[in-house]
């Protein structure tokens, strides 16, 4: 038992301010979004705001553009995440090997760089490095005899580019999470297992994997949430284009709300996104976080 019961006033004193703050900045705007979503609400025609019931929701649910954006978001997650886990696991296992400690410390520090980079800057860097004419990537590809590739202007390539930068930025995260997991394996158990078998994947599967599960679950949850939120990097790299080829869900809602000015429809889209997010995080979080108390 490491918790005590306290007076109601004490409880309110400790918790009240942050609950009030999150209510005021989180819940009140949300209720306003629900109100907006039930109206025809266009920023350019504010005189014509009128109640239209669930029409915006009906539009969203049958709107192929919305579901395509959702599909692209999950396609990105479905391609990038397995690659991040595979590469991340490889890097973690490599760093977990004994020896070469200086070089490994250096590697660990450089793994911090991609994660820390401002997401918007990643997109800008992408523009500079992958420019068809001035970009260094096409120059490097030229050295091995590959013709210049139109990275940003071609729909498929642009999507591949988004995947590439997502992998660049988040593989280090997966690697460090899994490395942290590997260090929790008791050294005696690991050494005993290595005496038993020479095959590294047997050790991985039966000895190390159980210790990696919490980390892997965390990665799964956070990457899902962050992909649903992903905006900055794609906005600065492609603005969702060419066409709608890289328009992920948050870019699409931003376009409808702030570039097409249809706040009513955008709010309905946002509410549906929120519901999907809450269902997913309910599912996920219960798997992962240990309960308070």
């Amino acid at each position: 038992m490491s918790a005590v019961s306290v007076k109601r006033s004490t409880l309110i004193g400790f918790l009240g301010p942050s609950i009030f703050a999150l209510l005021a900045i989180g819940i009140v705007p949300l209720l306003y979004a629900v109100w907006t979503s039930l109206h025809y609400f266009n920023l350019t025609k504010l005189k014509n705001v009128e109640f239209i019931g669930i029409e915006n929701y009906a539009t969203v649910l049958t709107d192929s553009v919305f579901w395509q954006a959702m599909g692209r978001t999950f396609t990105l997650l479905g391609i990038a995440l397995p690659i991040q886990i595979a590469l991340g696991l490889g890097i973690a296992l490599l760093l977990h090997q004994p020896g070469l400690s200086f070089l490994k410390t250096l590697t660990r520090l450089s793994l911090v760089l991609p994660m820390a980079t401002t997401y918007a800057v990643v997109g800008l860097l992408g523009q500079v490095m992958f420019n068809i004419k001035y970009g260094v990537i096409n120059q490097l590809l030229g050295f091995v005899g590959i013709e210049p590739v139109n990275w940003i202007g071609d729909p498929t390539n642009a999507f591949a580019l988004i995947i590439f930068w997502d992998i660049w930025q988040w593989t280090p995260f997966v690697a460090l999470v899994l490395l942290a997991g590997l260090t929790t394996v008791p050294a005696e158990i690991e050494e005993a297992a290595k005496l038993e078998t020479k095959r590294w994947y047997t050790v991985l599967r039966y000895v190390q994997l159980p210790f990696l599960i919490p980390g892997l679950t965390a990665v799964l949850i956070l990457r899902t949430a962050d992909t649903l939120k992903l905006f900055d990097m794609v906005f600065t790299l492609t603005r969702g284009g060419p066409g709608a080829s890289t328009e992920l869900i948050s870019l699409m809602i931003q376009r409808v709300g702030f570039r097409a000015f249809d706040q009513g429809l955008a709010s309905a889209q946002a509410i549906i996104l929120l519901i999907i997010t809450i269902i997913l995080s309910q599912l996920y979080i219960r798997l992962l976080y240990k309960e308070v108390g």
């Binding site: 999150l22 949300l30 306003y32 949430a225 709300g257 997010t277 997913l280 976080y289 309960e291 308070v292």
Partner: peptide, 23 residues
């Protein structure tokens, strides 16, 4: 309460950006 705090981490900023802008 704790679960509600966690959910805030998952919510996409675009959900709040729209109403916040209007308010």
């Amino acid at each position: 309460l704790w679960f509600w705090f966690i959910t805030n981490r998952m919510v996409s900023p675009i959900v709040l950006a729209l109403p916040f802008f209007l308010i």
